[in-house]
Each structure stands twice: as C-alpha cells, then as structure tokens.
Nucleic acid binder design. Structure first.
Lengths: 186, 186
DNA sequence: ATTTAATATTAAAATATTTGCATATTATTT
DNA sequence: AAATAATATGCAAATATTTTAATATTAAAT
C-alpha cells in the first residue's frame, strides 16, 4: 500500500512521468528509502488510475517507443495528504548478514572478513552515489548551508541525509566488524 | 528462506527451544536484525523438521501447557553452514517516513515535527533496550573491553553493535530533521 | 467463582514482493 | 544487414509477510 503513496509522492514532487521514468527515478534516488521493481511500478500506476488517484496520457514519440505519462490527480493529492498525516511504524529489519554473523563461527574467519569487506564496498559505493546526488541536486548546501534550500527541497534533502547516514553507518560498522574478527586470527 | 536460517542460527547459538521460546527470543533480541511473527516461526519450525533440519521432542509440563522443543540437526547445521558461506545482499529499504517527508509540505510543519518526535522516542526506546541487552549479556565488554569475549560471543556482539548504531543513527537523524523543519517555522 | 494474563500452538486469507518470462520500438554499434 | 543496447511495458507464478481468527492449558488476580 505504501508503494502507491511512494509513487504519488514522486509524481507530485518530481512531476508527471512515464512508468519507465518513475522506475529510473526509483532506481537512482528513491531506492534509498523505497525499493520497487518495474513490475510493481507499472501495475500500481495502472491501479491508481482505476481509483482516480492518477491520470494518464499517451505520448507519441518518433525517436523512441511511445509512452504513457502519469500525473497525480486532485483526489490522489488528497489521499496522499491523508496518508502523510498518519503515523508510521519503523520498518521491520531483515538483515541476512547479521544472522550469518551470529552463526559465523561455523565458517573460517577469512570467509567472514571477505564478505564484510565486500559489503563495505557495496555500502561505500552507495554512499558515494548519494553524496554525488546531494552535490548535484542540492549544490547550494555546500556553499550557503541547508538553510538556503526551499522548504520542499529541504524536506527531500532530509530524506537524502538519512540515506547518507545509513550508508555511512554501514561502512563504519563493517570496519569495526573486520577489525574485531581480525583480533581472533593469528 | 532466510527466516529458516535465522531460526537455525538461534537454535544453534541460543540452544534448543520451543516455538514459544524462539518467538520470545526473536521479539527481544533477534528483531534488531530479523523480525518474524509467531505464525511464521511455528510454521517454519515444522517445515524444517520435515526436511530434517530440525527435530522436535514433546515436553510434558505440569505448571504450564505442554510444549514442543526443537533442536538443530547435523543436516540443519550443514545447511546453515552452507548458507553462511553465501554472499548476501543488503536488504531492500522501505521506509514510509521518508516518502512522507518527501511530500511533507502538504501538511502543517507541526504535524511533521510531532511525528518525528514520536519516531525519535521509539528509536530512543529501542536504543535503550539494546544497550540494556548489551549490559546484561556482555557485561565484561564495559570492564575488560570487547576483546575479552569469546569468538562466538564477539560475533553476536557485533550484530548487537550494529543494532545500537542503527538506532543511534535514527535518533540523531530525527533530531536533525526536527531542527531543520523548525528553521522554516515562525 | 470469574476474569485476566501468560504460556503454547495452529489455520488460512489477504497483501506484498520477487522472480521469470515476454514483447515491441528505435538508435547505435559491429 | 545483423546484433546490441536503451526505451517502454506487461503477465503470471512463486515466495514471503501480514493480518485475522482460532484453540487450549495453567497461574494469578479480582
């Protein structure tokens, strides 16, 4: 259900888009707080149109295949507003790596260290991508501070900040874990 | 699928347990990296028994209803070991609050601040619980340092550390967000 | 005595997510 | 000319998770 609202918030803030555009937007930016596949996105956009939360227009293209561009409707905006006002619970965490660590004494420490190093790289890459996004989308933050942003931009910047914190924390924890396991090797 | 392995790792490390005990263990500790409902737990324990990964024994009790205690088998241990050796992907993040923030300009800033303060409390409570767990389960860490732990304990301590980092980061981010939104109020 | 709480477990429907497969158009490269 | 890549979209099965609804035993509280 929240997927629908994540889509609506993208249509509202990032503007009207085709399913393909939304998917790209999700892959690039939104995945730092909501991951979705293209199958989910296309389906949900169609279902929201049935409910009148989105409307669509087919755009003929010569350079590329035609596309269907979706926009948020007034009803969609109302629904989104109502949803934003609802309290939300923290996400259920399901982190395989932690279960693996708990029974990590079953395998050679080198295997754990290798996997942790791999994970650290993944999160470092994620962190770099988010920082690049911050530099691109919010350049004034670095010169004039976050207060220079419009209210709308500042809100989205906060979501990005959370992504940056999250990935940073992962990188640091991986480092801590690699060091710790190293203590037990001779 | 990972649920099965999260269960096996608990049976291995925390010892043989009834479904009820496992659920309690998940609610108290394991939920910091793997959340599961009791319905999931009981079902998966039964299914793993069919596959020979766990075995069970009915324990007659007089003070309480009878219970079925599950243990990990050699096969289960082998399967778990093989799984631990597999690389694992970072979890897909799905955080409603961030989508709400992105379209947060639709509602009064006070509503956002109230929700963020509520969330901050939830994460502060989670953090306190994890720190209490650390003090209870790993008391020597505070006196003799983490190096005093056995390898097995240290590995699990690392998972707990990740939980502590995660909740701390949330508390800090909530503070940052509350301050930021405050900047736009007069 | 009756209600409430804790222990202990199960079934099944409803949702959500993942995975595999498919199709079609246009631009670009080999 | 043919292959590849990017754009653009869809269906359906398989899994996983959440939600709703039960049932039964024992201890403790009202």
């Amino acid at each position: 259900m929240a997927l629908a609202y994540a889509l609506l918030s993208s249509l509202l803030v990032d503007g009207s888009q085709s399913g393909y555009d939304v998917v790209k937007c999700f892959d690039e930016q939104i995945s730092c707080y909501w991951r979705a596949t293209h199958q989910q996105v296309y389906k949900e956009l169609r279902e929201m149109e049935k409910k009148g939360w989105t409307c669509s227009e087919t755009i003929a293209q010569t350079q590329r295949p035609n596309k269907t561009v979706y926009s948020i409707t007034d009803l969609g905006r109302q629904e989104l507003t109502a949803w934003v006002l609802q309290p939300s619970q923290p996400t259920a965490i399901r982190e395989e790596l932690m279960a693996k660590l708990k029974s990590g004494f079953l395998v050679p420490p080198t295997a754990l260290i290798a996997e942790l190093a791999r994970r650290q790289q993944i999160h470092q890459a994620g962190l770099n991508a988010l920082k690049a996004m911050e530099a691109t989308d919010f350049p004034t933050v670095f010169t004039a501070g976050a207060k220079s942003l419009s209210y709308e931009a500042r809100l989205y910047h906060l979501a990005l900040r959370r992504g940056i914190r999250y990935e940073s924390e992962w990188v640091e924890w991986c480092e801590e874990a690699i060091q710790a396991i190293g203590d037990y090797q001779q």
